[in-house]
Design a protein around this nucleic acid. Structure first.
Length: 455
DNA sequence: CGCGTAACGGTTGAC
DNA sequence: CTGTCAACCGTTACG
């Protein structure tokens, strides 16, 4: 039902076969959870017809449409290992879909960082979101979301997709619990919890729940002692949780950890303190410090290879291939090749011309020529072919505080570093690392002439 | 008309 | 190895 509705509202979509799979009965639950009253009975009737026809000339033709897209979204089988929808046509799956603006996107996947970055940049140049949306052919909802996130977190990066919340009952935690229990067999679970916090074993984000602790006591630690009900007169609950900076220290100013973005084993949760808007408490790619860390590290080392495994890179598909056709030079920036290859794994699109994002987003600069290429991928690009780009002289730059550090090298592999509203950050997040923050971020923008034309 | 956002189908990755 | 789950994604359409 829900599926039907959804499909109906997007009947034009290119990769309808995937939707047709519609196997995910469980998804309905999620949908139900999220469902409001809005679309209970009809799939937003009415829109798709004419508008679609007007805006999607290139992908709706023929069979499957997507294959009519530019080769950057050409047909390509999923790589082994990737989930494949059941059905004989699975191998014909393509990733490209085209939105109403004619922009190409991959459903369920983040926009390339280059696009995200561009959105932020344009916004900081004073271009209205609606114009950004049109220029880049990204839905205004997405523009809004990215800008909102950027304003909130200072990061242009998408959130961490997939995975499960890291277990809080790590061996170390269990060990401490055991120690506490051994030290005081009558200790309550909530006391253990407090001690875990107080001792810095856990932080408020990853401290096990009382029930979890009880379960640990019961299952893993067994009967060191059974807390009796009569022991209720213990200490009152304790002190407020430690300031989470205690635990959630940013990697900097110490040499930034290259593993910032994905610190699966990090005892703390990097960057959390400053990321009020990021619900996930486990390592988040949004972490400014992570981003900084990655970036700084990369800038310093000039290599990603050593860190990519633990950074954001696994997610950095960035559908690099999406933009590849626009960059036929296929110059892999040092250290970026692997991520790019990984991107290929995820987005096995036309590999005709590989180019890491970093290739077209050179460090410390954002040459118009390259920029131009970024969004002008033939046909499937994000630039509207017709309407001219806003005049180069454009609106004034964003407020002085606003800045976007543009360093292309990391874009494809780990992180794009963006900062904004330092004052705000000062309040609720760590101040940007002086070393990591581009000293002349605005300068980067200054040096980022808006392409005179989108064509 | 511009924007914020709910709903939606989709992907991802830990478990 | 496979399925489940809960996170995130971008698009669409509503208000």
């Amino acid at each position: 039902m829900k599926f039907t509705l959804g499909l109906g509202s997007r009947a034009w979509r290119v990769s309808w076969e995937r939707a047709a799979a519609a196997v995910a009965g469980w998804r309905a639950n999620r949908g139900a959870l999220r469902s409001g009253a809005r679309r209970i009975s009809s799939p937003r009737p009415g829109r798709r017809g004419s508008r679609l026809a007007r805006t999607l000339p290139l992908c709706l033709s023929g069979d499957g449409g997507a294959r009519a897209l530019p080769d950057c979204f050409g047909p390509s089988p999923r790589r082994s290992g990737a989930r494949q929808p059941a059905g004989p046509r699975a191998m014909e799956q393509t990733y490209g879909e085209v939105n109403q603006l004619g922009g190409v996107f991959v459903n369920g996947r983040p926009l390339p960082n280059a696009i995200r970055l561009r959105i932020v940049e344009l916004a900081q140049l004073g271009i209205r979101p609606c114009d950004i949306s049109r220029q880049l052919r990204v839905s205004h909802g997405c523009v809004s979301k990215i800008l909102a996130r950027y304003n909130e977190t200072g990061s242009i990066l998408p959130g961490a997709i997939g995975g499960s919340k890291p277990r809080v009952t790590t061996p170390n935690v269990v060990k401490h619990i055991r120690d506490y229990k051994q030290g005081d067999p009558g200790i309550f679970a909530w006391e253990i919890r407090d001690r875990l916090l107080a001792d810095g074993v856990c932080d408020k984000y990853n401290v096990p729940s009382v029930s979890s602790i009880s379960r640990i006591l019961r299952n893993k630690i067994g009967n060191l002692a059974q807390p009796g009900p009569y022991e209720a007169s213990k200490q009152p609950p304790p002190q407020p949780a430690l300031p989470y900076n205690h635990i959630y220290q940013y990697p900097y100013p110490s040499p930034v950890s290259p593993t910032g973005a994905k610190m699966g084993s990090h005892p703390g949760v990097p960057g959390t303190a400053g990321h009020v808007s990021i619900p996930r408490s486990w390592p988040s790619a949004h972490s400014v410090s992570n981003i900084l860390g990655i970036r700084t590290f990369m800038e310093q080392t000039g290599a990603l290879a050593g860190s990519e495994g633990t950074t954001y890179s696994p997610k950095m598909e960035d559908w690099a291939s999406v933009n590849r056709t626009a960059f036929p030079t296929a110059q892999a920036v040092n250290g970026l090749e692997k991520p790019v290859l990984e991107a290929d794994i995820k987005y096995p699109q036309s590999a005709s011309s590989l180019s890491a994002v970093g290739t077209f987003l050179p460090a410390c600069a954002y040459p118009a020529s390259n920029q131009h290429g970024v969004y002008s991928a033939s046909g499937g690009g994000y630039l509207a072919p017709g309407p001219p780009w806003p005049p180069a002289q454009g609106p004034p730059l964003a407020p002085p505080g606003a800045s976007v550090a543009v360093h292309g090298g990391e874009l494809s592999a780990s992180a794009a570093v963006t900062f904004k509203h330092p004052s705000r950050e000062a309040a609720d997040r760590k101040p940007p690392s002086p070393g990591a923050k581009a000293p002349d971020a605005l300068g980067s923008l200054h040096g980022l002439p808006i392409p005179a034309s989108t064509s």
